[in-house]
Structures are given as C-alpha cells and as structure tokens.
Write a protein that binds this DNA or RNA. Structure first.
Lengths: 202, 202
DNA sequence: ATATTTTACTTGAACGATCAACTAAGTACC
DNA sequence: GGTACTTAGTTGATCGTTCAAGTAAAATAT
C-alpha cells in the first residue's frame, strides 16, 4: 500500500495505522510492519524509539485526521445540526458495510487493548474521544433552544459516542449491521422524545 | 491464584479467563498462562488442541457464568423490572470502580481483538451478547404495558448493551467513571421519556 | 571553488529472549 | 496391564531491538 512518494517515516505511520487497526497493537509484529512499509528495521529505529513510540505517533495522527476524515464530510452533506450528528453516525455505518461488518473503531479497539498502565497512549485515546464528543457537542449547542432547558449537552454527546462504539462492537461480533442500526434507531427515538419535551415548556 | 482444589483443566480455564481479560488473547503468552495455572505445556495439550481451542472454552464458560455472576445478583437486589436493568448496569459500575477504572468488558475486548475470520470465536461472543440482551429483554417484557405500544423491545435491549459497552470503553480510556455515569444518566432520561410517552396513550 | 567534516538516513545481519507447539518417558489409579 | 494424566525438555520460528557499516547530501573550512 505505501506510495513511493511517501517518506520512510510517513510510510511507517501509514502502515502502522492500517495494521494496528486491522490486527491490533500486540497482533502486529515488527516484521509485518516493516515489510508492509518496505522499510528496514534500522531505519525504523532512526525515526522511532520503539514500537510504542510509533503507537503514540499513530494516535496523534488520528487526532489530526478526525475532523477532515470523519467530521467534515458529514457536516458538508447536511446543514441541520441534528442531521449532522446522524450523518457522522451514518459514516460509521458506511465503514461497517465497506468492511463486510468486520469494522472495529481503531480507537475503541486500542482503548480496550492497550495496557492501562500505558498512560501516554491512553491519554491520547481519551483526547481523541474528547475531540469527537466536542464535534457532536457543537451540533447540540446549535440546536440547544429546541432541547429541554438544562439539558447536559456534553453528557448527551458522550452518550452518542458510547452508543456508536457499542453499536460498532456488536455489529462486528454479529457480522451484521443490524445491531448498529437498531441502536441508532433507538437513539433517533431518544432525540425525538427530547425535542418533543423541548417544545412543551420552552 | 489457582486453587489447589481445582483440576488441571479448570486451572487452565481459570487462568485463561483472567489473562485474556487482563492482557488480551494475543497479549497472553502460553508461558504466562502455564505459569499462572501451574501446569506444564504437555498437560495443556492433553486437554486442549491449541490456544484457540482454549479461547473457545473460555467463551463458552462466560456463557454459563453470565446469569449467575452478572444477572442474578442484580435481579436478587431489585424486584422492579426497570430497576433490574439499572442494577445490572450498576454492577458494571462496581467493576469499573473495583479495577480503578481499568475495567474492560472481557467480551467487548475480545469482540474487537479477535480476527473476524475466526468465525467460531465470534459466534460464541455474539451468543454471549445475545444472552445478555435476552436478560434485559425479560425485564422490558415485564414492563411492556408501561412503554409506548409497538416499542421494539429487542432493539431497546440491544441499545442498552451497546451503551454499556461504549460507556465501559470510555471510562477505561478516561480512567474515570464519569463517562459511564453520564451515559447511564442519559439512558435513565431516555426511559423516563419513554414511560412518560407510554402513559399518555395506553 | 575545492576539500573536509558533519549530518541524515539506509542497509541487512545478528542479538538474546520468547513464541506456540510437540514429544516421549514417566507416574498413578483403575 | 491399561487408561488418564503429568513431567521435563526440545523444536524451529518469530519476537522487538541493536549494531556496525555504508551512502549521499548539506554545512563548514580552507
């Protein structure tokens, strides 16, 4: 996969992003990574101190890719705030279908795999989650007046992320998009009820 | 940890259950497993064909442990159907706190880690999830008349599971029970709105 | 402008440790 | 004497990492 135009360092990050997602961190061997990136081990250790240092770089990269890859396409497709949230979720549905229901959120996977004592890695994962929640929170703020007064927007956004991660997980083990769809349908119902309650006493 | 009273086979399953949860499947080496169970490799291969066969046995064990360990204590504590669902979720909150927010659902972790091509393992994981959903569905059926007519109980139970898994995941990366609590609080609100809507037009 | 040194990066073999898996000889209880 | 199980050790492959030797271009000195 690595393009000839990419630098050695970028090829390593590219391959790591793919392999850590596909096989996990422990499940990816250095040999596999080096072969995929077409890099010799010596060059690897010129750019990175260790496999773990590369993981941190990958997690940092996700932080920069979140908006352009996950959020912006959804925001570009829909104007309406609530529609934007469900457009983000529809993006994950696409990913599930594109991988024949083998999809696992790369961050979710690492969140559960990486040793909790690896604090820097978990800090970066949490930062990614916070950034995702922040994007959803933007939409919620834009529709704040339609929601019941006093609604905890941050908690609601966290709820959306938790549901997405759980839905993706279930769809992977079921090898069917159905549990994801069911979960999203219930979330839609939740918002319908919230908006209904919001118009009652504004 | 393995008690002297346990058989060799049971010690292996016991240790595997612990280590696959703590370090993951790929992250657990045979040497570590054998040392933890105090078993020699020859004995291991007398009882199991491979490390993967042991994984299947562990997943099968979870299926048998779900009700006695996860469900029954919650059902014993609360009588009211909706309260029972939140008692199950409170059990996970306890696990998060007991592990100093390092908790990862053993099934969720394996669902994201295990290679999707490992069909037998994923079938067992999905069976576990289905069983969990079934238990929650029991509660929902018992309060069916209080919910809006035509509510998809199975979808609602799937929704609860997805939310629990996502909440556990976020709390692990945040190293805080807060995201879990926030998600559960929103779920409580969802049920409040559902029950409110259910009493309007019965 | 040319010679010299420094820096940046690549090469691929080799390190010791550990990996999952297997075997054959042995013990213990029927 | 036969079945069930344990013992201790070996297998060759693979693990993440290191290293000495090399190249090519940029920076510095003459």
């Amino acid at each position: 996969m690595p393009e000839a135009t990419l630098s050695t360092r970028d090829r390593l990050i590219h391959s790591a992003r793919y392999l850590f997602w596909e096989r996990g961190f422990a499940g990816t061997s250095m040999a596999e990574l080096l072969a995929n990136a077409e890099v010799n081990s010596g060059s690897f250790y010129h750019f990175f101190d260790s496999k773990e240092a590369l993981l941190r770089e990958v997690l940092d990269g996700y932080l920069r890719l979140l908006r352009p890859i996950v959020i912006e396409p959804a925001f570009a497709a829909v104007e309406e705030p609530l529609g934007r949230i469900f457009a983000i979720l529809a993006g994950y549905r696409e990913r599930i279908l594109a991988t024949d229901c083998r999809y696992g959120c790369p961050l979710g996977r690492l969140a559960l795999e990486i040793d909790p004592e690896n604090a820097p890695a978990h800090a970066l994962i949490a930062q990614n989650f916070r950034s995702w929640i922040g994007c959803v929170c933007e939409c919620l703020k834009a529709m704040k007046d339609k929601l019941p007064p006093g609604t905890d927007l941050d908690a609601l956004a966290t709820y959306v992320l938790a549901l997405m991660e759980g839905g993706v997980m279930l769809s992977r083990s079921y090898r069917s998009v159905e549990p994801f769809d069911r979960s999203i349908a219930q979330l839609r119902e939740h918002f319908r009820l919230l908006l209904q309650a919001g118009t009652k006493s504004p």
